[in-house]
């Protein structure tokens, strides 16, 4: 009996270790494959030039249009998300602080909202666009992505705000400040690291999302200047170039994938560093 138990133990410890290490290998393998494939095709032209004539048949040029388009959309969407997400998170943690149940219910709905796939946001953005009589444009893309990332912004920011000690909040009220003053002058400052992390996370999600901008932002070889012009995006650039039968163009898709991966890695790394640095000076 004892032997079977020990055998079972050994077997499962081995099996779970095996699964873990093979998982690590596979995940490392993904990054490695993307980087090796992509760096072979990556050059300065890819980053600094827009597509020239015959680009999609292997001609000169790069994906600067997509990089800029993605940045424009992600920055615009993040600004809108800050505008509606930041006050919403503050409201949950200041005005509703006495109502535990309401707070939890709201968090629950926000979490559920987080799970809605981006293609649904894309389809909704498209109907909204038709309804307002807009064309596929930078503005439509920005609005759709803003809807997609707002719940993420609120929930991440809220997670940090909820750890701020209640005493700080009460001290501010006791000194005679109003609730909104407490929210913007005390809570926002105290939760600033969380605020920055929330911004970076939503930004990263916005820049990498393809399905929501597929209908709404369109695609173009130029860098958009006005809000009503269509805009190319990096994920879609990867997707379209990969569909090409010409090997050179496919190579460029891999290079674009490396560019996107590096952008995402840089964002999540800086989010980590910033949240560490700022939270050190916080009251515990």
């Amino acid at each position: 009996m004892r032997r079977i138990k020990i055998l079972e133990e050994k077997f499962f410890v081995f099996l779970s270790a095996f699964m873990t290490y093979s998982l690590i290998t596979v995940l490392a393998f993904i990054i490695l494959v993307i980087f090796i494939k992509g760096f072979n095709a990556l050059n300065l032209d890819m980053i600094l030039k827009t597509p020239q004539g015959g680009y999609y048949y292997g001609g000169e040029g790069g994906v600067l249009n997509a990089i800029m388009g993605s940045l424009y959309i992600a920055v615009g969407a993040t600004l809108i998300a800050i505008f509606i997400g930041m006050p919403a998170a503050l409201y949950i943690n200041v005005q509703l602080v006495r109502y535990r149940r309401t707070q939890n219910t709201i968090r629950y709905f926000l979490d559920a909202l987080w799970g809605i796939p981006s293609i649904v946001y894309g389809a909704f953005g498209f109907t909204l666009m038709l309804f307002l009589g807009m064309n596929a444009s930078l503005l439509a893309g920005i609005i759709t992505v803003a809807l997609l990332i707002s719940p993420i912004m609120v929930r991440t920011f809220d997670e940090v705000l909820s750890t701020i000690p209640r005493g700080l909040h009460e001290a501010s009220l006791a000194l005679g400040s109003t609730r909104t003053e407490t929210a913007f002058r005390v809570m926002l400052r105290q939760g600033f690291s969380g605020f920055i992390t929330a911004i970076l996370l939503s930004f990263g999600r916005g820049i990498g999302d393809a399905a929501s901008v597929l209908f709404t932002a369109g695609y173009t070889d130029n860098i958009p200047i006005n809000l009503d012009e269509p805009a190319a995006t990096l994920p879609l650039a990867i997707f379209f170039q990969l569909g090409s039968p010409i090997p050179e163009v496919r190579e460029r898709a891999f290079a674009s994938a490396v560019i996107l991966t590096i952008i995402i890695l840089a964002i999540s790394l800086s989010a980590r560093i910033i949240s560490k640095r700022y939270s050190r000076s916080n009251l515990k």
């Binding site: 993904i30 993307i34 990498g208 994920p235 990867i238 991966t261 995402i264 890695l265």
Partner: peptide, 13 residues
Amino acid sequence: VLAGLPSVIYGVW
């Protein structure tokens, strides 16, 4: 970090 990688990257892979 891996959870934050865009899905198009997984598609390429």
